[in-house]
Design a protein around this nucleic acid. Structure first.
Length: 574
RNA sequence: CGGGAUGUAGCGCAGCCUGGUAGCGCACCUGCUUCGGGAGCAGGGGGCCGCUGGUUCGAUUCCAGUCAUCCCGACCA
């Protein structure tokens, strides 16, 4: 490709409405342009990287035995009503009507459609297992799209759905996908982790997320310093540190704490550590107030609590409700004397003589003890794990924390959708059985963004070669010097012939601009053809990632590039 | 949806407080010089000052509404 004939509108200045690096760089590198909030044009350069990821995904899915198909973006309301998600999904589902007033939506995911297809066509155990996938645009009307392609409303996704005769077979399908996903992200050249995850609104029995490690990641994940355990903090299990200390209960004390509301203020005022405090949170679960008790230095994990309560909505109570439940303004809540459902975190069991709110303005209690002073409804694991917590799986490890970007998610769905939509088959005995399903998603466009979050420097993007839009850029320092241009053309032709994707920068620009653009768009290899080196029969080969520069005779440059490209792609495949 | 902010040339911004029909840098076009890390000089083009209404002789400026975008929160594969 000749740069002068191509379309790469790069930008010098950072657009003011872009917050994260990948968004800024994709705009600056001319990979994307915004059309509306969370909706982007994919420009040629961006599309090339997206296609690279798609092809890797496609190859690995096919290798794992999945079969590609393509489902419509526009989906009829009836199927969503049948699964119950027409009501459940909320405003994220963009709904509209056709000219006959029939309800439709833009597909945010395709469980309903694929299950409908399979229930019509699959009748026998002989047709199973089956794994169908597509790579397609999805639309989710996110409340708050942000960070460019990281959380768009319209985005490109690979979604696969497996169908099996029973749970054991479904587990095998899941395992195959899990392994395929590892290969995919390895081949993309990404540093990532597979972590245990909450299943969220998709539902099902188990799931893993694939997280690209990056400081800017929206998700917090933990991994064990010793064993293989890794999980999203949303899901990570807290293990109690051990037996309770044996402290004699001291008499309950009332302490005036004028204006001291937060844990920080109260600990400073009382001179006790946060870990000797009891944090009391008032929440509303499906309209009913609930108290959550945590050790002062721990944070509530709302997902764990929501799962424990098995409720539809769970939110922090508004001030009026707190006042009504505790009889005191916000900041003085405690469990003593309250007659509501009280869920205490497991770590609370170990607290003795702790301090907490007194349910009166400017009052806290000291030397509170459970059982003696108040009763909890139940104990449950409802807190976020923290750095240094003991690993829930092995005896010796502790948990380390990371930030990650979710680029893939695999789910064991069980029979949630097959039951709702009555997808069944006849077994060898002619008996009707319900199909077991799994679903497996990869955010293709997000993967490109995540890659940039992980691989960039002050000058721009540093693409791993397997998903770079081009392998090698050939920068002709001065296009008006005939020998320079001729040599650049020759190298470009030879690279093309060798199967290397070259971008010939034949623009009549100053060298500085060309180098800046080359760095910005992140092409892994660069050959610089300039008159000085050319006089000695040499060209320069620069590695974007390391900055390493080598002078090579004209004749060897192409062979060297071909070798490097071959290595990178080969390495990625094995 | 709650809180905060911003809409002025393709991009980044100033002007507005104190009303008198708009300016800077980059980009773009022309010419000359330059040519290994975003060149210099000279000339030039480009604006419904987001939109609607109000106040006023007069509104980019003041007021109200509205739309859009961004940030925080809630929410979310």
């Amino acid at each position: 490709m000749r740069y002068s004939q191509y379309f790469i509108p790069t930008v010098k200045e950072t657009p003011s409405d872009a917050e994260v690096v990948s968004h800024q760089l994709m705009l600056r590198a001319g990979m994307i342009r915004k059309l509306a909030a969370g909706i982007y044009n994919y420009l040629p350069l961006g599309l090339r990287s997206i296609r690279k990821v798609e092809n890797i995904v496609r190859e690995e899915m096919n290798r794992a035995g999945a079969i590609e198909l393509l489902m419509p973006t526009v989906q009829p309301a009836e199927l969503w009503q049948e699964s119950g998600r027409w009501e459940q999904y909320g405003k994220e589902l963009l709904r509209f009507k056709d000219r006959k007033d029939a309800g439709f939506c833009l597909g945010p995911t395709h469980e309903e459609i694929i299950t409908d297809l399979v229930r019509r066509e699959v009748k026998s155990y002989r047709q199973l297992p089956l794994n169908l996938y597509q790579i397609q645009g999805k639309f989710r009307d996110e409340i708050r799209p942000r960070f460019g392609l990281m959380r768009g409303r319209e985005f490109i996704m690979k979604d696969a759905y497996s169908f099996d005769v029973d749970e054991k077979a479904a587990d095998l399908s899941y395992d195959k996908m899990y392994k395929a996903y590892r290969r995919i992200f390895e081949r993309c050249g990404l540093r990532f982790r597979a972590v245990e995850a909450d299943t969220g609104s998709i539902g099902g029995t188990a799931s893993h997320e694939f997280m690209v490690l990056a400081e800017s990641g929206e998700d917090a994940i933990v991994s064990c310093s010793v064993c293989e355990y890794a999980a999203n903090v949303e899901k990570a299990e807290a293990r109690s540190a051990g037996a309770a200390e044996h402290a004699e209960p001291r008499p309950l004390e009332r302490v005036a704490t004028p204006g001291k509301r937060s844990i920080e203020e109260v600990t400073a005022f009382l001179g006790v550590p946060a870990s000797a405090m009891l944090k009391t949170l008032v929440l509303v679960a499906d309209g009913t107030p609930v108290l959550a008790l945590l050790r002062g230095d721990h944070d509530l994990n709302e997902i764990k609590l929501k799962n424990y309560l098995d409720c539809h909505t769970l939110e922090m109570a508004p001030d009026e409700v707190v006042t009504k439940v505790t009889g005191a303004p916000v900041g003085f809540a405690g469990p003593v004397g309250l007659k509501v459902r009280i869920i205490a975190d497991l770590a609370v069991k170990e607290l003795r003589n702790f301090s907490t709110g007194g349910n009166e303005k400017d009052l806290h209690l000291k030397n509170v003890n459970l059982d003696r002073d108040c009763q909890v409804t139940a104990f449950a694991d409802i807190r976020n794990v923290t750095h240094g917590d003991p690993c829930p799986r092995c005896s010796s490890g502790t948990l380390e924390m990371w930030r990650g970007i979710e680029v893939g998610h695999v789910f064991k769905l069980g029979t949630k959708y097959s039951k709702a939509l009555k997808a069944s088959y006849l077994d060898a005995d002619g008996k009707e059985q319900i199909i077991f399903m799994g679903c497996y998603g990869i955010g293709i466009s997000r993967t490109v963004a995540a890659c940039i979050e992980q691989n960039h420097d002050k000058d721009g993007i540093i693409f791993p070669l397997p998903i770079a839009p081009f392998h090698c850029i050939i920068s002709a320092v001065n296009v008006k010097e005939e020998p320079v241009m001729a040599a650049a053309e020759t190298i470009y032709q030879q690279l093309c012939d060798a199967g290397v994707e070259g971008l010939l920068d034949d623009r009549d620009e100053r060298p500085g601009s060309k180098f800046k653009d080359a760095d910005l768009i992140g092409i892994p290899l660069r050959i610089v053809v300039g008159s000085k080196n050319l006089a000695d029969g040499n060209v320069e080969l620069k590695i974007r990632k390391t900055g390493e520069v080598q002078l090579l005779p004209l004749a060897e440059a192409v062979a060297k590039v071909k070798e490097l490209v071959g290595e990178a792609l080969q390495q990625a495949k094995d």
